[in-house]
C-alpha cells in the first residue's frame, strides 16, 4: 500500500535528521538521555502528524495558485502562495501551544523534564520542513500527506533516541579533549547518517 511504503521511506531513507539535518538544534541538546529523547520524539511526531495534513488542506484549498476556485469562478486567478510561510508557521505555533497544554495537564513530570524544549518544538526545523516538503512534493491526497507527517516524525524519534542511547554509552569513552561533547556528537551523527544511507535500496 502506498501509504505504508511512504512511511517506511520517510523513516529510513529520507530521515529528517540523517538525510536533511532538520531539527538538529534541540536534538543535540536533548539527546543525552534516552527517556527525555523519547518524550520529545513522541511530541514531535504528534505535532508533525497533525500539522502536515492541516497545512496540506490549507495549501490545496486556500493558498496555491487557483486553489480558491471552489469559492467561485472569479477567484480562480488568485494566488495566495506568498502567505504560505506565515500561515504554516502560525498553524505550527498554535499546535505546539496545544500540545504544551495537553502535556502539562496529563504528564507534569514530562512537562518539567522537557522544560524549554517543548515550546521550542514550534521552531524545530523538522516540523516546518515537513510542511515545506509537503508543499514541494504535491501529495495525491490528505491521507498520504498524514502518512508522510507521521513517518517523518517517527524517523526523527528514531534518530534522536538512537543518538541518546549512543551518547549515554559515550560517557565511558576516552574522547580527545577538543572533541568532547559537541564535536564527537557531530561526528557520531555523521557516521549514523552514513549508516542510514544503506537503507536507500529499500523497495516496498
Amino acid at each position: 500500500m502506498e501509504a505504508i511504503s511512504l512511511i517506511v521511506r520517510s523513516i529510513f531513507v529520507d530521515n529528517m535528521i540523517f538525510a536533511y539535518f532538520l531539527g538538529m538544534c534541540s536534538f543535540l541538546a536533548v539527546s543525552k538521555n534516552v527517556k527525555t529523547a523519547l518524550g520529545l520524539g513522541i511530541a514531535v511526531t504528534f505535532v508533525l502528524s497533525l500539522t502536515v495534513p492541516i497545512n496540506y488542506m490549507l495549501e490545496n484549498y486556500v493558498l496555491k495558485a487557483g486553489a480558491l476556485e471552489w469559492l467561485g469562478e472569479q477567484f480562480a486567478e488568485v494566488d495566495l502562495s506568498v502567505f504560505s510561510l506565515l500561515i504554516f508557521i502560525a498553524v505550527i505555533a498554535s499546535f505546539t501551544q496545544l500540545v504544551e497544554m495537553v502535556i502539562e495537564r496529563f504528564s507534569p513530570s514530562l512537562y518539567s523534564s522537557l522544560g524549554i524544549f517543548l515550546p521550542l518544538i514550534a521552531v524545530n526545523c523538522s516540523i516546518l520542513g515537513g510542511s515545506l516538503f509537503m508543499q514541494q512534493r504535491e501529495f495525491a491526497d490528505v491521507g498520504i500527506a498524514t502518512a508522510y507527517g507521521f513517518g517523518s516524525g517517527i524517523g526523527w524519534l528514531l534518530a534522536i533516541v538512537g543518538m541518546a542511547a549512543v551518547r549515554e554509552k559515550l560517557e565511558y569513552s576516552n574522547v580527545p579533549k577538543p572533541l568532547k561533547g559537541l564535536g564527537i556528537t557531530f561526528i557520531l551523527t555523521g557516521l549514523m547518517a552514513l549508516g542510514f544511507m544503506s537503507f536507500a535500496g529499500i523497495n516496498i
Partner: peptide, 21 residues
C-alpha cells in the same frame, strides 16, 4: 553525500577547540 557535512563540522570543531582551549 550529506553525512560528510556533519563529519566536516566535527573536524572544524576539533581544530577550533584545540586553538581555543
Amino acid at each position: 553525500l550529506a553525512p560528510m557535512a556533519l563529519l566536516l563540522i566535527g573536524v572544524i570543531i576539533w581544530i577550533h577547540r584545540s586553538q581555543n582551549k
